[in-house]
Design a protein around this nucleic acid. Structure first.
Length: 215
DNA sequence: CGTTGGATCTTCT
DNA sequence: GAAGATCCAACGC
């Protein structure tokens, strides 16, 4: 069976929470600077609902230089830098001028392990010891971007058209992995306590018992 | 074990 | 000038 790249119609829908849930079990892949294909299965996501969501960078339709890519139509990457150290990768959803997006929080590394390990060592993350490097190589939103080679260069590029700069490819695929509904856990988001009541909504999804979810 | 602080940059107040 | 959609290592119990 052939792997199917997710296209615009997948991201352009209006129910971002549903998209976040459906992304569990899909594959996130990159091919950067000719280093080869890297990626794996998505095991954790979070939905951010733009204008009505205090935790979103697009709350109240605030528009700035930094978050302008949030307002693109579904199917674009929104990457931004945080804590002086990490890039976080989101995929924009919904229609143009709607600031909805899904944050990819963790993947299960499967493709291009050696390349991802090399990137992690290069970034000086973790002990890199006997197996210290591999165990949490993509288990968290700040880590998976390191492993996949994602940074601000990718902010605003499309993830569903193959025609972008050849050394700067990010896309998502359906590899026919079906995660049973009972194995997907919904929880409140983390790290957004300032968002008050919005922090409590169950917009975070992860695969139950999966070793690669963030902590 | 659990908790804490440091790293270090962008954005908005 | 402060705080953030984070991670890790060093500490204290």
């Amino acid at each position: 069976m052939e792997y199917r790249k997710l296209d615009k119609s997948f991201y352009a829908r209006e129910d971002t929470v549903k998209i976040a849930k459906e992304l569990i079990g899909k594959y996130l892949l990159t091919d950067i600077d000719g280093e080869g294909v890297t990626g794996g299965k998505i095991v954790e996501t979070e939905a951010y609902l733009g204008a009505i969501d205090k935790a979103s960078h697009g709350y109240g339709n605030r528009k700035t230089e930094r978050n302008k890519n949030l307002y693109k139509a579904g199917g674009y990457a929104y990457v931004y830098f945080i804590y002086g150290m990490y890039y976080l990768f989101n995929v924009v959803t919904g229609k143009e001028n709607n600031a909805d997006a899904v944050l990819i929080r963790a993947i299960e590394p499967e493709i291009g392990l050696d390349i991802m390990l090399k990137r992690k060592e290069k970034a000086g993350r973790g002990k890199g010891g006997a197996n210290g490097g591999i165990n949490r190589i993509t288990s968290g939103p700040g880590l998976l971007t390191i492993a996949l080679g994602i940074n601000l260069r990718h902010n605003g590029i499309p993830v569903c058209e193959g025609k972008e700069p050849e050394k700067l490819n990010i896309w998502l695929e359906d590899r026919n992995v079906n995660i049973a509904g009972k194995d997907v856990i919904e929880t409140p988001r983390v790290g957004v306590g300032y968002a008050a009541e919005h922090a409590l909504l169950p917009y975070r999804f992860k695969i139950k018992g999966n070793k690669w979810v963030s902590r």
